[in-house]
Design a protein around this nucleic acid. Structure first.
Lengths: 187, 187
DNA sequence: AGCTATCTATAAGT
DNA sequence: ACTTATAGATAGCT
């Protein structure tokens, strides 16, 4: 055991720093916890906030990395709701409920081709008009404006409802675009 | 620098182990990745599976630790659906939809400005009556409708901007109500 | 489906 | 809120 000191992969400086750090830790660091209800009120609130954000971030990353569609609804014990949705919560819920209703045939592909982006369906006629609210209303005539007004009513109703909810719950995380959809303006 | 060896917090054995480990790493270890769509098919599949499981675990822990109610729906790009629900997915969705549908009278406005900043643009007139989009447009005449249209243009422009931003970020968590403001309808 | 180095999330403490 | 040590998640291999 007569190795020369210089063979150590850790320098004296580093060792000193480590020892120094051990003497006066600025924080205690993360501890292992049991996964059971946190009884202390303040701790539970902090954990809820941190972990909720963490989970939503994970969801966002999963959407982005793997092109997934995700909807998340979280109710706190107090009943406050927090949501995440991509492309929108209502889109995901609708899709889920629809698929649940019509007994869709999920033939087992044994996971082999999952998470593979589906190519454009050729037969599907997709209107490329865009969203109705993206249309300019400058050129609309009175009749068209009337129709627009109808859509607007529905749209505004959703906005107001959403806004009141958000204000009440003091959260701005709620997906607003429940009214998202493509509607062709009749001309 | 004549410290005795025994003051080292790291033993020779540990040092040897570390050096040994460096010589023959059994894996390359985790690498930092950009959060954008994983183009390689196989990698995306694997990431989707791992991260989906990870997220569901996080959700489960959040439920247990903080007594939360959570529902999660995930669609893979292929269209396969994966769910999580506590106490059950249907319970959470029902609760969410019920709260969404029924119009609630929120009389407590003590905290109503928590997540929004009221801002006056360009010295515009500000009224305390309410939001212009809360007004019924049923009774507006042509001139008033014209004015409404002008506000709507601005409003819609904000909505479109926000939406594009959201699509860019692929998240619907963002606060949409940057456009909130009180504007008096001239009558 | 396992392994491990490394990155990331987060429990405690300030 | 901010910091920091550490538990936990996971990218790249096999």
């Amino acid at each position: 055991m007569e190795k020369p000191f210089r063979s150590l992969p850790i320098s004296w400086n580093e060792v000193e720093q480590q020892q120094q750090a051990k003497r006066k830790p600025k924080g205690t660091g993360r501890k292992k916890i049991e996964i059971k209800k946190i009884e202390k009120n303040s701790s539970r609130k902090v954990a809820f906030s941190k972990r909720r954000k963490g989970m939503f971030k994970k969801a966002e990353e999963l959407c982005w990395l793997c092109d997934a569609e995700i909807g998340i609804i979280v109710f706190s014990p107090k009943g406050r709701v927090y949501c995440f949705g991509h492309p929108s919560l209502n889109y995901v819920i609708d899709k889920f409920l629809t698929e649940n209703d019509e007994f869709k045939d999920y033939s087992d592909d044994s996971d082999s081709n999952d998470c593979v982006t589906e190519e454009e369906e050729d037969g599907e006629e997709v209107e490329e008009e865009g969203f109705w609210w993206e249309e300019s209303i400058e050129d609309l005539n009175m009749d068209e404006l009337e129709i627009y007004k109808t859509y607007l009513e529905k749209f505004r109703c959703n906005v107001v409802t959403k806004m009141e909810e958000m204000v009440m719950r003091r959260t701005c995380e709620r997906d607003f675009f429940g009214v998202r959809g493509r509607i062709l303006l009749i001309k």
